[in-house]
């Protein structure tokens, strides 16, 4: 999974609308408010051992991490139109939008 990044800067992506915390013990770094949301890839940040595995001392293959940009207003229905949120998201949480 530490191959070349799947998404290039500027690519439109969607964060998976997945809720592993409903299925049992887990550790995830994708905050709830971006799940299912569309965003734009800012840039890949490198490949890092998957924290979802590290948290349980399992073998942790590296995954590409991205900076992904979201508009604030559609998420919260408040804020100024141009305001944004930038979040580090692992590749396995992203799909093409």
């Amino acid at each position: 999974m530490s191959d070349a990044p799947r998404f290039a800067p500027g690519a439109a992506v969607r964060v998976k609308d997945d809720w592993p915390e409903r299925r049992g013990p887990c550790h995830i770094r994708t905050p709830h408010y971006i799940r299912g949301r569309r965003g734009t890839i800012v840039r890949p940040l490198g490949a890092f051992a998957n924290p979802e595995d590290l948290a349980f001392a399992r073998p942790a293959p590296k995954r590409t991490l991205y900076h992904v940009l979201f508009e604030q207003e559609p998420i919260w229905h408040e804020g100024k139109p141009a305001d944004t949120i930038m979040v580090e998201v692992f590749e396995h949480w992203l799909e093409e939008a």
Binding site: P25, H27, P51, L54, A55, F56, A57
Partner: peptide
């Protein structure tokens, strides 16, 4: 221990 394990413990 790893910082990820620390977080998992805090989250539980």
């Amino acid at each position: 221990m790893t910082v990820d394990e620390l977080r998992r413990g805090i989250e539980s």
